[in-house]
Design a protein around this nucleic acid. Sequence first.
DNA 1: CCCTGGCCGCTTTTT
DNA 2: GCGGCCAGGG
Length: 748
Amino acid sequence: MNFECLKNEFLNREFSELNDRQREAVFSVSGNLLILAGAGSGKTTVIINRIYFMLKYGDLSSVKCSDELLRMLVRGFEDKKSLSDFSEALNFDPILPEDVLAITFTNKAAKEIRERLEAKLGEKADRIWASTFHSMCAKILRIHAESLGYSPRFAIYDSDDTKRLIKECIKSLNIEEKILPVKSCMSHISSAKDSLLDSFGFKMKYENDFKMSRISQVYDMYEDKKKKSDAMDFDDLVMNTVKLFKKHPKIRRQYMERFKYVMVDEYQDTSESQHELIKMLTGKNGNLCVVGDDDQSIYKFRGADVDNILSFDKYFKDVKVIRLEQNYRSSGNILSAANAVISNNSSRKSKFLWTSSGDGCKIRVHVSYSEHDEAEIISKEILEGVKNGKKYSDFAVLYRSGIQSAVIEKLLTRNGIPFRVIGNVRFFERKEIKDILSYLSVINNPNDEIRLRRIINRPNRTIGDRTLSSIAEVAQKNNRSFFEVISNCSKYRELQRASYKITSFSSLMNVLIEANKDGMALHDLYDLVLEKIGYIDFIKSSEDDPNPRIENINELRNYILVFESQRGDGASLAEFLEEVSLVSDSASSEDEQDFVSLMTIHASKGLEFPVVFLPGFEEGIFPSQQCIYEPDSIEEERRLAYVALTRAKEKIFILHSTSRMTYGTTSHNKPSRFISEIPSNLLEITKSKDWKKLAASDRIPPSNKQVRVKSVVLARSFGSITRKPSFPVKTNVLFRRPGIEKEQDQIV
DNA sequence: CCCTGGCCGCTTTTT
DNA sequence: GCGGCCAGGG
């Protein structure tokens, strides 16, 4: 018996709940490691255990052991002791929590990691940096803001702010919006930033391209205005951190030395800029562990580059690759189907999911005659399942595109099935919430022009476009900020006429700014803002049904209270805004927990359900029309299909319809190619009866009794319920909307 | 400055 | 088929 073997015996016993591959990943501490984690292969468990292992043992490969000690260990092993009981004798060198950086994409994932680490490690876990790319960058940039010419209080613009600002730039450059739509301009600028192309580089690159050089003008102006507003957009957070590290090698070294062990989750979703950031943090010889699945790369459209994971071993030295292929989620037939579909992709690392559990049931493919019929079949199957002891929450309906949900919502409602649409409008993006947050942002950073413009006439103060542009003009001419101009507007002749209105607004704001400076508690400031601006009355007078909005406003107050109780006394406005700007996470419901989940396939990544319905498996829907003639895009769609299939634990229903109404016109789509890529022996095909041949009585959609179903629009924070509140946005809409009856007539 | 009617356009989404 | 957005009239 040598030490190496004995050590493994100890560790295998301690980590016996893991499989061999998982253990290998957990024990590989030093050097660069790529973990290719298939769907449902216990990825997060590996991440948690690996950090746990590092903090407990460090890198055991360098530990030496004398003969005498070895005999002691053998005895210890027989006495069921753990290797850590010999820590002093073996003199191993644990890694400190502050040496570890764990990066994820979403707050939800970061939170899960933090919670699971806390459960396993106790308070030590707090010292580990576990955060998203963006919050990590924001944290670093706040510290070094001045080196890049920002103040530490810089604002963070979300896509709505960004859009408004870009729109303004397009306007003031006198570019026809028809030639250059804001959306396309925004996405060009965003993807430039994803690949670290700043406005200067952009200008150089596209000198000879007419359209792109117009965009370059916008890019220039956008950057300029944003800088003057002391603000960064989401893409800036990453790009500016890279810039900071390039410009100040000392600062870079400081972080490289600090984060001795770096882990990145969902590496297939990284963009070029994020990849570069990781390179700068770890260097060529760092200890970098990335986890991901190239087959689940579905975010190319927002800058993700699969190549970062596919060519990981080219970018980093001496990479050890570990594949996690044992699946703990789905039955055999589901995995066979998923494997078969994904094997049609050419650019991928080979991987083959397997399970030790049985084949399970076949994959049911159902051919319906319309999208109504399709939704009806789903409803029937759910009711049938519930009759046989399943819960509503065992079911999920996953679709390619959000527009598919409407019909399904309708028929589920009609059948009295409780459901929720996950990921529609997010809490912090609601108009009333953005309005109030904009007030708070301006109080924190009066230079934030875009948000100042948003609120200056909300509630109405009859300060219109005219006045706004003359303020902007004056600001430009006198080289003053927008806020400075409105605070002293009586001094400017051009603003004389509107002076009274503007001054009453600016003095209001100045009162609020002072209140904040005096250290007023956050929730008191919030109340003061609402009261001073008369926002509730404004909502009451301008909305047909003000209640949902008022509920949201109250909910924001709750959120502040929770924030204050977490942070203790010193909870500052700046900290609050930081959290809010990076957290899209939102409401969860207090009451009913048993509901069917409806969401896009994208939103379902990482989740699992016993029974999964996949409506709209048709050419033109999925794969979507735009992708059909592009091989690369088809591969991305196929990965999406792979994600969809691997969500299911027990049963999959794939549905396609011989006719479907989209955008007001009826189309007849062929079944999706992804269906034919599944071996037919795994399929069980059923068909709706031809509706024309049905007796008239059978054609009436079943129950039209008015069932009260609450459909709450949830953000993606599903499962992690931290606050009680809910936002019943869509309660009963379906029955109040006229036209349903009409709709039924059409079917009959 | 606000309201309303007509017109366009329309995957996927986190931060 | 529907909603968001812009232009034009009140």
